[in-house]
Design a protein around this nucleic acid. Structure first.
Length: 262
DNA sequence: ATGGTGGTCGAACCA
């Protein structure tokens, strides 16, 4: 079984229903994982998705903030959700495909502006979220699994537009990168995007605040596709759909794709 | 050092 998967922080699934439909029409991934839906599950506009061949969804939602959803052409079994760091936020949901592969969709806390948990509670929550996730993977090694989402960390020097300038900026601080790497090693996860695209600058997010995001190109790679080591060799064809950042009423994130032959 | 933009939901919070 082969399938293509995409992950996209949509920043309101209701406001951006038109560009979700555009992505499904033009790129037709088999599975689309969304973050920051900012909607209760019952208000996600599923009818249009179903009309395009995506009748299956597992999701967790809340009013106004957070929210994650997995849309699919392929039947999905709800595989539960976690409330990491006990925030009471809808930041994770998992689904199982008929071939037994589990897809984890995460929206990691952004962490606020000050990279110090003594001054900024949100930064501590972000680190705690990652520590708890690490501990779960250390206790039980995940198998035949894919983990995607807006992890709100750009781990590599070439995942940001200026490594030195961003070392004290939340999303690229050494302590965040260390926490993310501990999650990866605890679960034996492989960074599929960098397996396929090992070299060079690569971003998936550009701030709304830049005058000309495309020309300035001050991006960061915050959105990730990982696979457990038992299936990582089946992954291929990773790409970032940068053009979606320039669509009508865009999200500040672009979708990240990967395909799997399993 | 600061402010820049955008979404939610209708003032303040979050990214």
């Amino acid at each position: 079984m082969s399938f293509t998967l995409a992950t996209w922080n949509i920043n309101s699934v209701r406001l951006r229903e038109p560009i979700v439909l555009q992505l499904l029409r033009e790129e037709a991934p088999d599975v689309l994982c969304l973050q920051e839906c900012k909607s209760p599950v019952e208000l996600i506009p599923t009818a249009g998705f179903a009309d395009l061949g995506y009748p299956h969804m597992v999701a967790r939602g809340q009013k106004g903030y957070n929210g994650v959803a997995i849309l699919s052409k392929i039947p999905l079994e709800d595989a539960g959700s976690l409330d990491l760091a006990q925030l009471g936020h809808a930041r994770h949901v998992a689904a199982r495909l008929p071939n037994g592969v589990t897809i984890h969709n995460h929206y990691v806390p952004a962490g606020g502006d000050v990279p110090d948990r003594a001054q900024n509670e949100k930064f501590g929550q972000k680190l705690d979220y990652l520590t708890e996730l690490r501990d779960i993977f250390a206790a039980q090694k995940p198998q035949r699994s894919i983990l995607v989402g807006d992890l709100n960390i750009a781990p590599r020097e070439d995942d940001v537009w200026d490594h030195k300038k961003l070392l004290k900026i939340v999303s690229h601080t050494p302590i965040e990168v260390a926490h993310l790497n501990e999650v990866m090693s605890a679960g034996h996860w492989v960074d599929v995007t960098r397996q396929d695209i090992p070299d060079g600058l690569l971003y998936s997010w550009w701030s709304y605040r830049a005058k000309d995001w495309d020309a300035a190109d001050k991006g960061r790679r915050l959105d990730h596709v990982w696979a457990t080591s038992d299936i990582s060799a089946a992954a291929h064809s990773s790409r970032v759909l940068r053009e979606a950042r320039g669509w009508e009423k865009p999200s500040d994130h672009a979708p990240v794709f990967a395909s799997f032959d399993l």
